[in-house]
Design a protein around this nucleic acid. Structure first.
Length: 598
RNA sequence: GGGGCCGUAGCUCAAUUGGUUAGAGUACUGGACUGUCGAUCCAGUGGUUGCGGGUUCGAGUCCCGUCGGCCUCGCCA
């Protein structure tokens, strides 16, 4: 070992000890006769001092040190002189009086340093990820991630789950996200697909009798990125046999409570609250509502039908919906200009035709530019329905059910943050259950699975598979934390006939089902136990537990929004011989002359 | 594929309505200093304003295109 201690562990009780430390030069303070260096490693910082008694050569060497040089220092731990203790530093009571210094490696002038006050732009951070990862905040996040994963693994191990790995090179399955493909060298024209999740394998493991499976699984989806979405991400994937939905939920309830306790020191009472999908859409316009604050959607379609105001009446009479939100005390904070911004927001992002708003006056009446188009009694009824208080702002969307959901969800999220309706520190975990089995895809003119095609319908809804697919509810559940989908799962179909029935509805005929999922259908015939499970988004757990607003900060080496790695240059062009071996011809090269990986 | 924000010194930012030599802090270089901890003080180096084109007497500023980063809709569970 090149060191006897880390830079974070020496305290007053070590005074007098001869120690050796290694680390990075964080900052230097050169006073001429004495030079102070804060030496940093992932455990902390320790002040190391070169003074005349260290010897002239040590002082000279210290004067030449630069940010991020890697050094080894030997010396005696000493109390700091009175009045020079640094309470901001865990090691601030002591310092190391250096007698020997050795530069292990020099650092050329870095584009930024881990301790600089203003964070550099994100592209620089990504390009020099090793420098960014030296920042204590990043190190803490990766430590948090490690602890979360360990807690999860411990929990499942204690509950008799077996950790089993599943292939990365798999077979492309239709439905769901776009696959990342890997060409086969041996079978020209054929491709492996990277897993979107280990879904089918874990079902097969249930058939194989591993009645409790768990895996920390890397998953890949070739779709456009977001602040909380990366092309490769990590799931805590689990599956259980001989269970019903409640059993899976109970296991995860226990895990969430354990994580909250061990990681955050917070008590979460279980079982976690549950809400059906229909209720979530009705009250919050979204299947992952942020329940840290109220502000529920209020339906005023019936009142709108009686309005003189043509926009409201025509939408209501035409089968649309008029729903609104009450933004408490927001009237004074939202100028006409800011309301115009909200209008633009709902139009641009959600395709709403407009935003109708009212200000609640001190006497409780509603005022708006369009108020004159309403009968006074009706305005009073609307105010009453909305439980309006003076100073509130009422916002309405008159549109299709779908658009009112999306737009009001967006408004609620935005207003909740802007009006500070919740404490960002709090953690709210809940379940949304009984998702629809199917959604109708207008473009493709067919039903598609909302979750995946192996999801079991609720027993009482099986007959609706034929008669009314849209009303059929699934044994599906999502774990929602602070308005974010943190995980989702289902009870699976274990009956091959029911599975084929679902395939039929999805337009997957028996032949193509055989072709694509024959192995699963076969397996279901060889004694498949009833089973179900869930997958939790580990990156999102880290994000939520760490109070972070972006998934890249939760991943050591993330991709940019355009799915590139600024450090390695991936994806890069490959040698034509590699393509020839794979019998692949590129017909449309990206115009890219700055490819540094080539 | 659509909408939006951003790109100026190594880094973080400023630059009035389009106006003359593009500034500050920090980093860096040299010097002073034995108790600092975002050390301090003195001096100095450092710019293709992302790139290309256009408008103009004049462009960091306006317009068009393009590259890159971020947010978002579609997409994705």
């Amino acid at each position: 070992m090149l060191r006897t201690h880390t830079c974070g562990e020496l305290r007053a009780d070590a005074v007098g000890q001869e120690v050796t430390l290694c680390g990075w030069v964080d900052t230097t303070r050169d006073h001429g006769g004495a030079v102070f260096v804060d030496l940093r490693d992932r455990y902390g910082k320790t002040q190391v001092v070169a003074a005349p008694e260290s010897g002239a050569d040590v002082v000279e060497a210290f004067k030449k040190l630069h940010s991020e040089d890697v050094i080894q220092v030997r010396g005696k731990v000493a109390h700091r002189p009175q009045g020079t203790v640094n309470p901001k530093l865990a090691t601030g009571e002591i310092e190391l009086r250096v007698t020997e210094v050795r530069t292990l490696n020099q650092c050329t002038s870095p584009p930024f340093t881990p301790t600089q006050i203003d964070l550099p732009s994100e592209d620089l951070r990504l390009r020099y990820r090793y420098l960014d990862l030296r920042r204590p905040a990043m190190q803490q996040t990766l430590l948090l991630r490690s602890r979360i994963i360990k807690t999860m693994r411990d929990y499942f191990a204690e509950h008799d789950f077996i950790d089993i790995e599943t292939p990365i090179l798999g077979r492309s399955t239709p439905e769901g996200a776009r696959d990342y493909l890997v060409p086969s060298r041996i079978h020209h024209g054929k491709f492996y697909a990277l897993p979107q999740s280990p879904q089918l394998y874990k079902q097969i493991l249930m058939v194989a009798g591993f009645d409790r499976y768990v895996q920390v699984a890397r998953c890949f989806r070739d779709e456009d990125l977001r602040a909380d979405r990366q092309p490769e991400f990590t799931q805590l994937d689990m599956e259980m046999s001989f269970v019903e939905a409640d059993d899976v939920l109970a296991v995860i309830d226990g895990l969430v409570a354990r994580l909250a306790k061990e990681i955050l020191g917070v008590d979460v009472s279980t079982p976690l609250p549950r809400m059906t999908y229909d209720e979530a859409m009705r009250r919050f316009g979204h299947d992952a509502p942020d329940l840290r604050f109220d502000m529920e959607i209020v339906d005023c379609t019936d009142l709108a039908r009686r309005a003189d105001f043509r926009v409201f009446r025509s939408v209501a009479e035409g089968g649309g919906h008029v729903r609104g939100l009450r933004a408490p005390g927001a009237a004074s904070q939202y100028s006409r200009k800011k309301i115009d911004e909200l209008t633009e927001y709902v139009q641009q992002d959600f395709g709403a035709k407009g935003l109708v708003w009212f200000r609640v006056e001190p006497d409780g009446t509603l005022w708006a530019p369009v108020a004159k188009n309403f009968q006074a009694e009706l305005l009073a009824e609307i105010a009453q329905r909305m439980e309006a208080e003076p100073g509130d702002l009422l916002l309405f969307i008159a549109d299709s059910w779908d658009v009112t959901c999306k737009a009001l969800y967006g408004l609620r999220k935005r207003l909740g943050a802007e009006l500070k309706l919740y404490d960002p520190q709090t953690l709210h975990c809940s379940w949304v259950v009984e998702f629809p089995m199917f959604e109708y895809d207008d473009e493709e003119q067919r039903w598609v699975a909302m979750h995946h095609p192996f999801t079991a319908p609720r027993p009482q809804d099986i007959e609706k598979l034929q008669s009314d697919p849209g009303a059929c509810r699934a044994q599906a559940y999502d774990l929602v934390i602070n308005g974010s989908e943190a995980g989702g799962g289902t009870i699976r179909i274990h009956d091959p006939r029911l599975q084929q029935q679902v395939f039929d509805l999805l337009g997957i005929d028996e032949a193509s089902a055989r072709d694509r999922f024959g192995f699963l259908l076969d397996a279901l015939r060889y004694g498949a136990p009833p089973h179900g499970g869930i997958a939790l988004g580990i990156d999102r757990f880290v994000m939520l537990f760490g109070g972070l607003d972006n998934i890249r900060d939760c991943i050591a080496f993330p991709k940019t929004q355009r799915a590139t790695d600024l450090m390695t240059g991936a994806p890069g062009i490959v040698d034509p011989r590699q393509l020839a071996e794979l019998a692949i011809e590129v017909t449309d090269f990206e115009d890219d002359e700055t490819d540094e990986a080539s």
